[in-house]
Amino acid sequence: MTTPTDFLLWVRGPGFDIALVVFILGVIIRLLEVLVLGRKHDYSEPRGGELGPGLKTVVTRTLPETGSFKRAPFTVIGGYIWHIGFFISLFLFVPHIELINATLGLSWPGIASNLVDAVAAVTIVTLIAMLFSRLTHPVKRYLSGPEDYLTWLVTFLPMLTGYLAYHRMIDPYPLVLGLHILSVEVLMIVFPFTKLMHAFTFFIARWYNGAMSGRRGVQS
């Protein structure tokens, strides 16, 4: 690994393979662990269906509960902004769609790069503001452990390096592009073993809450 090009070739070759293996293995093992374990059989007579309320809750919990919105509007709005910004940057940026198309054969229309650029800038600023709030708000600070800061960092770095790569703020280009890909690989490796897994498990948790309430005939 002597030159930036070698570095780029490594991260998009062996580096990516390693990250992909850890990511897929980790996610599947952790999901199956949860699912195979199952839950105790409920012998009570159902007072309602599970499917409908389960699905409904997966959707309805996307909206913030009014109480928590009133108590912590910044956390809720910031959380929305950066999640949506992250998804737009990840899935609507043309080179990313190209990457997915080239590797998985799936494709969809993207949006103008300069629009993604603006979204990414807002997302980066929001992430920094969220960290600042986490560090300064006494309750949030008390609740935060090392894992919270780690997950913040591995989410933030792909956004930051992507922005730097798009604007060529680090020379030479293969170096900054390599750093961007590497940061995503770090995210992929850390993902299954941290609370980042919520991206997969939130469906299960919400479904279960909704289904359980549905069976009991109460609103979730």
């Binding site: 070739l9 998009r12 070759g13 393979d17 990457l99 590797t103 998985l104 592009l177």
Partner: peptide, 11 residues
Amino acid sequence: LSIPDSDIIRN
């Protein structure tokens, strides 16, 4: 430039 070299689907 940024597309990984290996056969992602197979892997």
